[in-house]
């Protein structure tokens, strides 16, 4: 568990994933294999490749949301390296609480919970006082141009772009050392895209290691320190 350079936050080697579709006669759908790359603190690695190449699957494997069929996903977590490919559910939850944040494309929130609380929740569950967490949530929402009169409403009634900004605020609020970003700017206008680029810059200065998927060439150019081409990991079907 220790053979990785002391600096890398994420060290993936030969990770692979295949879906077996039992309802479709058990066909095997190879997604990726031989996934190997590292991410250093303060670095933003952007995954590139055509749609269907397995970019989102790789992010989900790093988050422990998809199981790996082989290889290793080394995550530096509270001073030790945890291999998420073979971790117990309890370990994965602990890694998510203290180390890895994930900004998905879509917001999945409990109905009825106010926007400000949706955003503040990751901080509160990490032990931050509710008032302080809400204060920071408010700052982020303001920065992402969500008007204050909406904060008390549940985000389920918001437009797609607004929901995505709530999701971004929720993802960026914690001080976690690793962030995974799945199309964080997909349905945003230019002004809000610029805010997200700024937020990412800020995370880099705080030494956060990031892996991102972005289709927008301009944004990719602005945030990527390195590009990893996922087509090289495409499973030979």
């Amino acid at each position: 568990m220790t053979a990785m350079p002391m600096t890398a936050m994420i060290d993936i080697s030969r990770a692979e994933k295949t879906f077996t579709m039992h309802l479709q006669g058990g066909i095997e759908l190879p997604v990726v294999s031989g996934v190997t790359f590292q991410v250093q603190p303060g670095e933003c690695v952007v995954l590139s490749g055509p749609s269907g190449a397995g970019k989102s699957s790789i992010l989900k494997m790093i988050f422990g949301n998809y199981r790996c069929d082989g290889g290793r996903i080394g995550i530096r977590h509270q001073g030790v390296v945890v291999d998420l490919a073979g971790a117990e559910p309890r370990q994965i939850l602990s890694v998510r609480r203290a180390t890895i944040g994930y900004v998905s494309q879509f917001l999945r929130a409990v109905p009825r919970v106010a926007t400000i609380d949706v955003v503040a929740e990751p901080l509160i569950s990490n032990g931050t006082a509710r008032s302080e967490a809400q204060e920071r949530a408010g700052q982020l929402l303001r920065r992402l141009n969500i008007p204050e009169r909406l904060w008390a409403l549940p985000p389920s009634t918001f437009s797609g772009g607004e929901q995505q900004r709530v999701n971004i605020a929720r993802g960026f609020i914690s001080d976690l050392p690793i962030l995974l970003l799945d199309e964080p700017t997909a349905s945003l206008d230019a002004a809000n895209r610029a805010v997200v680029v700024e937020l990412i810059e800020q995370k880099k200065r705080a030494d956060v290691a990031m892996v991102a998927i972005v289709h927008d060439d301009e944004i990719r150019h602005l945030i990527a320190d390195r590009i990893v081409d996922v087509t090289s990991f495409a499973s030979a079907a």
């Binding site: 879906f19 077996t20 579709m21 039992h22 309802l23 989900k60 422990g64 949301n65 998809y66 199981r67 559910p89 994965i92 939850l93």
Partner: peptide, 20 residues
């Protein structure tokens, strides 16, 4: 397994049926 893992990446035929 972890709830989101089992629901987003179900392995067993029956779990895949439930989720789908």
């Amino acid at each position: 397994g972890l709830t989101d893992q089992v629901l987003d990446d179900p392995r067993e035929p029956y779990t895949q049926l439930l989720v789908s």
